[in-house]
Design a protein around this nucleic acid. Structure first.
Lengths: 243, 243
DNA sequence: CGGAATGTTGAACCGTTTCAAACGGAGTGG
DNA sequence: CCACTCCGTTTGAAACGGTTCAACATTCCG
């Protein structure tokens, strides 16, 4: 337990402040949250479908993905989780988790008790509001994800995914030559986009061939942002990046 | 404006009470909300991508659907809205709407000002919580929708959709011979499920041929609930129907 | 009644999957 | 340091699910 003035909570506050005003008093209240940290290796579960817990998990560093698996055993990746996000806020109010979150990289987490969070929300409506807004943004992103899978072909779908990730990982402002780590196998990309790993491979190669991106290992470079955006039909408004 | 003791707000309260405790005092506070009613014919927009408004819209009666359209002009239906739902709660905190809601049947709505809602949330944390939970459930449903489109074939997809609608329209408890109105064209079903109208047609006929459902006009009867559930790989937990 | 929207059906087509085989890189143990 | 294995990537060929297009039937609605 720890309430030091520079703490994992910082990331959370930054995230919240992205969409809502968070006052100095709010910050103090948030810093007051008790938590306990943990490290997870790449590939481990942060949340399992069916879990019942008494704490929420804040992703302090690293990248994870949320997924569900159908009764027939097919996996659908639903979103990418980055730092500053509480990955199972739902559980503060709904006991049983109904999806999985698994790490892509080594991750650091902080656990915050449901009771503490719920208490905070009652005490400080402005914080409750800030969390509410982040959830609304998640909902918005979830909807765009659905649109992407339901109504775009493989090429646009992959391009759209890359655009979203590039913006969310918040590389830098330069609109060209964005480079970022994308520690996902083609199998995982397939499960994210409703495609097979094989077809992801072919589609990625197509994007490379056409000079839109390059890749090596797990890093992607976007060579021509404007054109990739056009291929994807990408419009960033749904991310609500500036409130 | 109107604050009569039996009012459109009743539906909203029932909805909220489904997932959270709503006290007698909460009910009074909710009843105190001022609103103005309106009727919309089938096919009209309740919300448009890009809209900026100062009020939220409560769906009092009727059925609507939420959708987005991709830059290339393809429509993806994202969810079905039933009565008791505020279809654009998001706008209480995020100015610009980023999706559309359109009526399927004649609908009655009530408008509630953003200011009034936000004020209520601050005054009564338990109500804020109840709304939060309904949003979390929406998020859960959105995720299952994504899974459905991404990882099930046409037959399972249509079956899953029918299962969800049957439960959400809350027909009756009899597990067989559920009958309900589904006022959607095959074109709309296609847009909901990431398929073409033509293929919806063939898939529906397949389900009829196999004795799982019957249809006439816009009413569907589920003949064999258990089997339909199996075809769909349907597990209702994600709907959080009982809190 | 007439015209538009929706549903139905068949045939050809195509984007994606499936299957299978080969390749490469990272890690391990001898 | 090599041989071996494991995992992910790459590639090709064949198969398939779903789309597209087109024509016709039906229902809805003014």
């Amino acid at each position: 337990m720890n309430t030091a003035s520079f703490s994992p909570i910082t990331h959370l506050i930054n995230k919240l402040a992205l969409h809502s005003q968070v006052t100095a008093e709010d910050r103090v209240a948030l810093f007051g949250l008790a938590y306990s940290s943990r490290i997870f290796e790449a590939g481990s579960y942060l949340l399992r479908d069916g879990d019942i817990t008494d704490h929420c998990t804040l992703l302090v560093s690293g990248i994870a993905f949320r997924h569900k698996v159908s009764a027939e055993g097919f996996r659908q990746i639903l979103s990418i989780c980055v730092n500053g996000e509480i990955i199972n806020l739902q559980q503060a109010y709904i006991e049983i988790a109904d999806n999985n979150v698994q790490t892509l990289t080594r991750c650091e987490t902080a656990s915050i008790s449901h009771v503490a969070l719920r208490h905070l929300f009652v005490e400080r409506p402005s914080i409750a509001r800030a969390f509410y807004v982040t959830t609304l943004v998640e909902l918005s992103m979830s909807r765009e994800w659905t649109l992407n899978i339901g109504r775009r072909d493989a090429r646009a779908r992959v391009a759209h995914f890359l655009c979203e990730i590039a913006l969310r990982l918040d590389i830098d402002d330069s609109m060209t030559n964005k480079t970022f780590e994308l520690p996902m196998t083609q199998e995982q990309l397939g499960d994210a986009l409703g495609l097979t790993a094989v077809h992801i491979n072919r589609t990625l190669k197509g994007l490379v061939r056409d000079g839109l991106i390059t890749r090596s290992n797990y890093t992607v470079t976007i060579l021509d942002w404007e054109r990739l955006v056009r291929v994807a039909g990408f419009e960033s408004r749904y991310l609500h990046l500036n409130g």
